[in-house]
Amino acid sequence: MLRLLKNYYVEILLVFVLASFILFFSSDQFLAFEMDISFLTSFTKNPQLQSLSTIFLSIFLEGLPFILFGVFISSFIHEFVNENGLWRYVPKNPFLSIPMAIVLGFVLPICECGIVPIARRLIEKKLPVYTAFTFLLAAPIVNPVTIFSTYIAFGNDWSMTIVRVALGAGIAIVMGGLFYLFFQNIPVLKEIPNTCDHDHESCCTTDQAGHEHSHTENWRERVEYALHHAIFEFLNMGKYFVLGAFLAACFQTFIGFSAIQSTGKYEWLSIVLLMGIAFGLSICSSSDAFIAASFRNAVGAAPLFAFLVYGPIMDLKNLLMMSGSFRPTVIWFFWSGTTVLTIVSVVFFL
C-alpha cells in the first residue's frame, strides 16, 4: 500500500487537483448536492478560517510577482553570467574585496534561496572565504528586487529601505571581517568524497551540462534553458514562500497582534520574538517586506528592523541548505555571529 502511494503519489495528487478544478467549474451542480457534500465544505463558513484564507491568499498574491521576478532575473543570470569571469576580478586585499562583494550582491541579484549553492561553488573555485560569505550575506538584502519590494511594501518610503540596506550591508561587512580573521586557513566546506554533494548532484549535473551546451548554442536555446531552469527555481522558492505565507496567515488569524503588542513594554523581548518569527518563516527576502509591513502597526522600529535584517540573512531553510555544504563549526559561527550582530546593530543604531 505504502509503496503504491510512493510510486503513484504524483498521479494521485494530479487527480486530486483536477477533481478540484472540475468541482469548481461546475459549482452550480456542486451546490445542488448539498445534502451529501455540505458537511465537507461546512468548515469554509468558519469566519476565522475565512479570514485565514483571505490573509493567506493576499500575502501570496502580493508576493507572487516578486518571486517570479526574482526567479526570472536569477535564472537568466545563472545562464548568461559566467561565474568564473566574475570572481577573477575580485581584488586580493580584504579591504577592497569585502566592499566589492557587497557591490557584487547588488549587481547579481540572487535571493537567499539560490545563494548557498553559488557561494559554495565560488569557494570551491578558490574565491576567498570571507568574500564569499560577505556576498552570501549581502546579496539577499542589497538586491534591487528586495530594495524595490521594500520600497513598495512600506508605501513608497525610501527611509525604511535605506536603513534596512545599510544595516544588512554593515552586518555583511563585519561578518566578512570576522571570517577573514578566523577562517583564513581553515577549510570551511564539508568534505565529500565525491566532489559533487547532493545539491550539485541533483541540480547541477544538469546545470553543468546545460552550461557546457549553452556556450555553443544560440541565444534562443539559452533563453529557453534559463526559462526551464526558472520553473524549478520558482517551485523550489514557491514552496517555502507558500509555507511562510500560510504560517504568517495562521499567526495573524489565531494569535493576532496582541502577542506582539503585549511584549511592547520590553523591547528586547519583541526584538527576539520577531527574529524568531523571521527565522521560522524563512520567507524569501524579495517579499518578506510585505509581511513585515503587517507588523508595522504592532511593533516599534527596532523589532521591525530586526525582522527585516535577520530574515534575509539567517533563516530555517537557509540554515538547512548551508548545513549541506559547510562544516558545523562554520555554521555555528555564522549563526551566532549574525544573531548577535543583528541584535547589537538594531539596539544601538535605532
Binding site: 503519489y9 541533483s202 520553473i231 517551485l235 523550489n236
Partner: peptide
C-alpha cells in the same frame, strides 16, 4: 533541473 519533492508540490 532541481528536485522539488512531494511536499514541495503539495505546498505550492
Amino acid at each position: 533541473a532541481h528536485p522539488v519533492g512531494v511536499w514541495g508540490y503539495l505546498m505550492v
